[in-house]
Design a protein around this nucleic acid. Structure first.
Lengths: 118, 118
DNA sequence: AGTATTAACTTGCATTTCACAAGTTAGCCT
DNA sequence: AGGCTAACTTGTGAAATGCAAGTTAATACT
């Protein structure tokens, strides 16, 4: 079980950001927290992208260990203890907005169903 | 060999962007083209992140099929025929800048070697 | 003109990550 | 106290990735 051990590929900030968040799920979790404020484990599972439970648990652990998210009640039990963004996680909003804007503009031809708000 | 077939997980633009670019390598290729203008296959291999040849070839094919990059000489042979960004690929610059800025600000404590410019 | 060199790949295989289904644990409710 | 269910964990097969080696064809060299 390796928690916050990352093999940083280089000193480049972009590549380092991707070392952390460059996968299909981490930023989906951040997006859900940006749009909903807080989310419990089972609420994450309700998102249309259908993350699987083991991946969700691992990503929540990882994002917590990297201080992007935290429990709403830090000392409470897990049950119904939602997650929320830390300042660090919340600071990803511009990145997600930029990506969303790009997708709307350049992905419509490949994916006509794409919508304007998530 | 499936080219531009994607299983879009939802109609959300953020998730759709990640369907395409949510991996460790695609945006590294875009970054190299943003910072260098054009790059040949072997120049991509020289980047410090050390992409492997099969992944590079597949991503170049994918990014080409999605019209984010193109050959500098569209009808020329492959040898020394560099790649460049299309308008679509170039439009990812704000996304990468946002991610790079975030990383510089919030990843330094975990990755002290991180630099300001790539 | 013929040969050597090398850029741009492809192929095969081991390793890691991921997806899917099922099982487990522990708060909470009545 | 017994059942329900949120929050996970575990197991297994499939897919993606990493690594080393091999192939092809355009250019360079003599």
């Amino acid at each position: 079980m390796k928690s916050q051990e990352f093999d940083w590929r280089s000193a480049c900030p972009i590549s380092s950001g991707l070392d952390l968040l460059g996968d299909k799920w981490s930023l989906i979790i951040i997006r859900d927290l940006i749009t909903h404020g807080t989310r419990t484990y089972s609420e994450f599972l309700e998102s249309p992208e259908q993350i699987s439970t083991n991946i969700l648990a691992e990503r929540l652990r990882m994002l917590t260990s990297m201080n992007l998210i935290e429990r709403v009640d830090p000392n409470g039990a897990a049950r119904n203890n939602a997650f929320q963004l830390t300042p660090s996680g919340a600071a990803l909003r511009p990145t997600l907005e930029a990506l969303g804007n790009w997708s709307q503009k350049y992905l419509k031809s490949f994916h006509p169903e794409i919508v304007s708000l998530d």
